[in-house]
Amino acid sequence: MGIQFYVQNALGGLAYGSLLFLIASGLTLIFGLMRIINLAQTAFYLLGAYIGLSLVGQGWNFWLAGLAGGVLTMALGLAVYSAFLHRYHADPLTSLLLTLGFALILDDGILARWGGDPHAIAPPAMLGGSITVGSLVFPQYWLALIGISFLIAAIMFLSLQRTMLGVIIRASVDDEEMARGLGVDVNRAFYIVFAAGALIAGLGGMLGGPITSAYPGLDGELLPLAFAVVIVGGMGSLTGAFVGSLLIGLVNAFGKAMFPELSYFTIFVPVALIMAFRPQGLFGRKL
């Protein structure tokens, strides 16, 4: 195992971690703010991927198709939130069962509309090639995905740290009741955060598609990874989601390469360690 092995897997792990961030960032913020465990978050990812690939099939540009997939997923997420979920914030059990129900409905809807065969999603033509450095070969698209995810992460950080909406969201994560008592319409922040979570997950489906492809059951495979990220990073922490995603992505890549028969197990080693020694996660508030 030379340097090539490490660089290759590090890049692959960072790329995979980048797509995990697009799912887990929404998951952690939605939980931190509204105490809703959104089991439909990876179904949003899958839906975004299928909408995107259908649009590409009709001749749409990759990026526009991804954006449209994100926006349509957001519209569906908002419909679900305003019709059902908004009544059950701070009621984790009910909201968990509701989102599980919607995940199952989405899964079956996807199966009925797009069938059971896996669909490959090609990266945009300009990023379809490989980069060769010495004996090292890796897809250009990996670097593009890492770059885009970092950009989205930066936008989310700045919105949270530098805007009044971000101040209100952080205040509400700290102490929702107190924020209400000071005149903050916390429900408005709930809608915005849920919508943003669905948008980024839906967009992530297309962006991550060239790596994960799209097939029924993909959402169920991604969900434990996304939760591993949230647990490792700390619930409600965007920094935690970012660091946790890259960490889980790297552990996943190296685990698969070095102990392929134990690949699923290796993910949960950091989770078990965190739960034993730092149950609030790397960046979470003390429980």
Binding site: V167, R170, D175, M178
Partner: peptide, 29 residues
């Protein structure tokens, strides 16, 4: 929040300062 907006201010028991906001941001809220 409607009650607060009509002009009722609250200094709660235990103060309930937002710990992850700066002093300036606490005032902004």
């Amino acid at each position: 929040h409607e009650i607060a907006r009509r002009g009722v201010g609250l200094v709660p028991q235990g103060r309930r300062i937002f710990p992850s906001l700066t002093v300036r941001e606490n005032l902004a809220v």
